[in-house]
Amino acid sequence: MSRIANTFKALKEKNKKALIPYITAGDPHPDLTVSMLHALVDAGADMIELGIPFSDPMADGPTIQRASERALAHHVGLSHVFKMVKAFREKDDKTPIILMGYANPIEAIGAETFVERAKNSDVDGVITVDYPPEECMHFTKLLKEKNIDSIFLLSPTTELDRVKLIIEQASGFLYYVSLKGVTGAANIDIEQVKSKVSIIRELTKLPIGVGFGVRDAATAKEVAKISDAVVVGSRMVQEIENSNKDNLISNISKLMQELREAVN
């Protein structure tokens, strides 16, 4: 069983929901990323989404765009991201790491090379924002052969037939994008999310995570009630942006603990 599946199983036995923070690799500085990952786990993260910096993050709002720009200012790319995950694994063999990014950096090194390096550095799952399932059958197959989960996004506009198609390709969990918009927008409609999640649930046994509009502990709490996992991205990145190198770790740990308490 994959680390992701194990994590969901263990949480379910304890009747708990998964909490998944997102940070961009290399933001604010590549030397800090690994210790930030450990700090997030210590403060209650069940898995971590690690963003691959990209020059043209089309699906991201200003907060995560700036995170990418800060990382790119230090020339952080996939080769660094793999090294960071490997370094993280030296002390943590349990917490799933999910890479999230765009197709072009993957295609630049080639799908085969990407998957091989992801396996070598013990990555657990991959979300590629601009790879709809129809366009990445080969990539999904390569990931599957190496037991890495392919996590796909579902959106409020995804029609039922497509939900089924996506479920066939997906593993690990399904990621429901809670709003029409880019990351960090703040207009999540809990009732709407609830009804869509329950429709999806009838079609699959895969856990369902919800993200894109979770701005605070109160929203996280509401989302946790209707899903299996809560993803907190822009809010976490905002905390990073507002910190300096002396209080960074304590600030993100504190936010993580608040979210953990709200979700439990």
Partner: peptide, 21 residues
Amino acid sequence: SPIGVLHGNRTYLMQNEEGQI
């Protein structure tokens, strides 16, 4: 230039080795 993915399609694309445009 190498082939890549940007703005919704696959095409020839000016980029560095890390796939940044």
